[in-house]
Write a protein that binds this DNA or RNA. Sequence first.
DNA 1: TAATAAAAATGTAATAAATACAATATAATA
DNA 2: TATTATATTGTATTTATTACATTTTTATTA
Lengths: 139, 139
Amino acid sequence: MKISVETLMDIFKNKGIRPSYTRVRIMEYLAANRSHPTADEIYGSLVGEIPTLSKTTVYNSMNAFVEAGLARVITIEDNEVRYDADISDHGHFKCTRCGRIYDFPVDVEALQPNGLSGFKVSQRDVYFKGTCPGCLDNK
Amino acid sequence: MKISVETLMDIFKNKGIRPSYTRVRIMEYLAANRSHPTADEIYGSLVGEIPTLSKTTVYNSMNAFVEAGLARVITIEDNEVRYDADISDHGHFKCTRCGRIYDFPVDVEALQPNGLSGFKVSQRDVYFKGTCPGCLDNK
DNA sequence: TAATAAAAATGTAATAAATACAATATAATA
DNA sequence: TATTATATTGTATTTATTACATTTTTATTA
């Protein structure tokens, strides 16, 4: 999904986020690349085009996006935080062989555990792990 | 659930894990304290009774347990890895107010996403976040 | 358009979790 | 008991993330 810069500026303004050049570029990248990148990967992918980019800015921007509900954090792996611009209801599968993370549709809302009556649930994450079809083929 | 040392020794042997004193104590602690502790918390709770304990040993032991299927890793929060001796099918809820992690029953196996045909799924985690009843009361 | 104020970006330093690794200690085996 | 294999320890290292002061950019006002 390619998102236009104009739309992005409007989205940012609606959320009270200043649409600075850097932020627009980071969000653009995240919306176009659905590989669930880490902050380090975002930095590495953009620093070629934005030579003054700093890693702290990537962290700052991502925190702002997450807080505004424009992106979500994926903590499927214990040593790396990943980001996803797709905030719709879906699960994440990580292939432990190739490391790729796949989205999959899952009705998380349908999970209404009776053990949580009286709890206010505001975020739901479903993480699966295993081996993806490609890695199952070429062992 | 209090587990006897004898049972623990047998479980370890069956899994090919040497039942060293330290490992037994760590596993005992994890089985008795269902607070989903971090490696640091395990260390802090046991170093008083086992003065020679090192944090590296906690990490080593926990890795061995997880690999043997005796414990599971909880990555519900992005800055801390927690451990759970309860490997039965259940979800985890983290209260963002008090930080406590609650278990809740959820039929994770029932989640059979059709988007994952051809994938070999070996691990399923369901993480919810929000506010627990206690924190909802005293705001 | 120029001046000003507010917020963002930058870079360095600090923090903290986890791992690597060599030396020592413990457990299992002969 | 002696030997071998494995576990533990402690220090050093790595790496992700945050803190913070400075500089730059953006938005606002004159």
